[in-house]
């Protein structure tokens, strides 16, 4: 919390320099992607895009410290990521994952309240401050009418909103979402991404998500990180279009990128 308040606007929340990611086993090092450099700032929505298997999920796992980077540096609010304890990290980074949660018998409000765990005492008592943050998250995501419903009664889109509200209630400077729009129709895809942009702008959090929705992301994001395997390109969507980054994204035999419309077309 203190770190979040003292960091000045424009000062990056997360900075990655010359990052190489992959898996380290006893026998060998498997590098999945290398030479990734980018900065995530407060109040900005950033998308990570790239072909299947290029390492988007590995990158997100590395950023959230589930696995460690092979080389390069990661700085979170001015300190290296490694120097964070579990609890301190949970106060700086919250996650929204693709996986199903095992218990859907929780109510919406209970699920969101679990996001306060990094701040609660040993038995998990909610203080007035915690309750206020949970209410705030419910209001921000317009979940008032659903808050007493059980999670198994919700649609995929509604449930995704609940998990985003839980991450917001965790009150971190960075929110990371792994493919938040899978299983959703095009309306709800747009709805969720637009919601993320509004959240980034109103709450001044930095929000990072991975996605296959390239054309939607071009229209909605402040910054984009395009993973190309041997390197990664980072910038505003316009800069990336000018640089011709999207043309390198896929093999050229089937589809091509049209820089005027910002979409892919069949050749």
């Amino acid at each position: 919390m203190t770190t979040a308040m003292t960091s000045i606007t424009g000062h990056p929340v997360l900075r990655a320099e010359k990052l190489a990611i992959g898996y380290l086993s006893r026998k060998a090092t498997t590098t999945i992607a290398r030479d990734i450099s980018f900065e995530l700032s407060r109040g900005e929505l950033t998308a990570v895009i790239g072909a299947n298997g290029i390492g988007k999920s590995t990158l997100l796992r590395t950023l959230s410290k589930i696995q460690s980077a092979l080389s390069g540096t990661l700085t979170l609010s001015g300190k290296t990521l490694d120097s964070y304890s579990n609890i301190r990290l949970a106060q700086e980074i919250s996650l929204v994952l693709t996986e199903q949660i095992p218990s859907r018998n929780l109510t919406v409000a209970e699920t969101i309240a679990l996001g306060r765990q990094p701040y609660t005492n040993w038995i998990g008592n909610l203080t007035a401050e915690d309750t206020r943050k949970v209410r705030e998250a419910i209001t921000l995501l317009h979940l008032e009418t659903l808050q007493h419903k059980k999670c198994y009664t919700l649609s995929d889109g509604q449930f995704q909103k609940v998990m985003i509200a839980r991450a917001i209630a965790q009150d971190t400077s960075l929110v990371i979402l792994d493919e938040p729009t899978t299983h959703l129709d095009v309306y709800h895809k747009t709805y969720i991404l637009k919601l993320l942009r509004d959240l980034a702008h109103t709450t001044q959090k930095s929000i990072l998500y991975s996605s296959h929705e390239i054309d939607l992301s071009i229209q909605l994001c402040d910054k984009m990180l395009v993973m190309l395997g041997q390197r990664a390109d980072f910038g505003t969507p316009c800069e990336l279009i000018e640089r011709g980054t999207f043309r390198e994204l896929f093999p050229p035999d089937l589809i091509e990128f049209d820089p005027n419309t910002g979409t892919f077309r069949i050749r």
Binding site: S64, I66, N86, I87, L89, A90, Q91, I93, S94, L95, L97, E99, Q100, I101, P102, L114, G115, Q117, P118, Q170
Partner: peptide, 9 residues
């Protein structure tokens, strides 16, 4: 789930 639990400290 364990991944969420870990992300909450």
């Amino acid at each position: 789930g364990e991944n969420y639990a870990r992300s909450m400290g």
